[in-house]
């Protein structure tokens, strides 16, 4: 397993953001994590990266138990470049004062690679995300949202990580840019990189993921192969998710079904 999360709990003061989430990603596998805003998706990714502490549970990344690492051990582990992170917001995930070249090469420079070598890798990676080398001297402000998100993906890939965590990588993009990034992720998956693809939209994950886990109020309520979860959802929230995804066929008949699922979920929420 490239990633194994076991009974993970994260608290922010009183708020119980994750309540015993368990999940695993096999080598070369793409796992989607779906959930509504505030369900704990980003918290899960941030806990795996050591950006928030876990209050219980275990996280094993590529054979290393990272649960108890101290700051120095974390830094050493991160420099190995096993795991990388792509953020939700393409506007803020690149330093506005640094050229694309500096941003892209940063992970390698931190590892101590020379600038010349890092820059030539950066050029390769830009090509891999279908961007031209002329972008290297630009600032993020001069790029479109879709281009920036592809640069962010390229930055994550420059250290050749085994696992990439993608936190809503396409949520802020319009459809043509979304397809480009999804296509890129598909290529990555086919090249053998493991992906944890976080999204609030089952639809954008469906085309890329092998398995999906549905996160609802800090718990994983459903998990399985994409096809099974979509065609035979069991939890009411998953049913609502499937029923809500914009599909091209007219969905007028589903309106009533969705209304009753929503009623069910709110009454459950009131109980718990």
């Amino acid at each position: 397993m490239v990633l194994r999360v076991d009974g993970l709990e994260v608290r922010y003061g009183k708020l119980h953001a994750l309540r015993g989430a368990s999940l695993s990603v096999a080598p070369g596998e793409t796992v989607g994590v779906i959930g509504e805003t505030g369900s704990g998706k980003s918290t899960l990714a941030r806990a795996v990266l050591g950006l928030v502490p876990a209050s219980a549970g275990q996280i094993v990344v590529d054979g290393t138990d990272v649960t108890g690492l101290n700051t120095r051990q974390w830094r050493a582990f991160r420099r190995r470049g096993v795991v990388q992170y792509v953020f939700q917001d393409p506007l803020r995930s690149l330093d506005p004062d640094l050229t694309i070249a500096s941003s892209l090469t940063e992970p390698l420079r931190i590892q101590g690679v020379s600038f010349a070598e890092a820059a030539s890798r950066a050029r390769e990676l830009l090509k891999r995300v279908s961007l031209g080398p002329e972008l290297l001297d630009r600032l993020p402000g001069e790029l479109s949202g879709g281009q920036r998100q592809r640069v962010a993906v390229a930055r994550a890939l420059i250290v050749e990580p085994r696992l990439v965590l993608l936190d809503e990588p396409v949520s802020a993009l319009d459809s043509s840019n979304r397809v480009r990034v999804l296509e890129l992720l598909k290529q990555l998956r086919d090249a053998g990189t493991s992906l944890l693809f976080i999204s609030h939209d089952l639809g954008s994950v469906a085309g890329v993921a092998d398995r999906v886990a549905v996160l609802y109020r800090g718990e994983i309520v459903e998990q399985g192969p994409v096809r099974d979860v979509i065609s035979r959802p069991t939890h009411p929230y998953t049913k609502l998710l499937v029923g809500s995804a914009p599909t091209l066929r007219s969905a007028a008949a589903d309106r009533a079904a969705r209304a009753s699922l929503r009623a069910l979920l709110t009454s459950e929420g009131a109980v718990s």
């Binding site: 397809v179 469906a206 085309g207 890329v208 096809r227």
Partner: peptide, 23 residues
């Protein structure tokens, strides 16, 4: 057609039974 195709290859549609065969 491109917009439709984007949905077909990346959306949920291909997992759900479609009532419009023409798609």
């Amino acid at each position: 057609r491109l917009l439709i195709d984007e949905h077909e290859s990346y959306g949920l549609d291909r997992f759900l039974s479609l009532d419009g065969a023409a798609l």
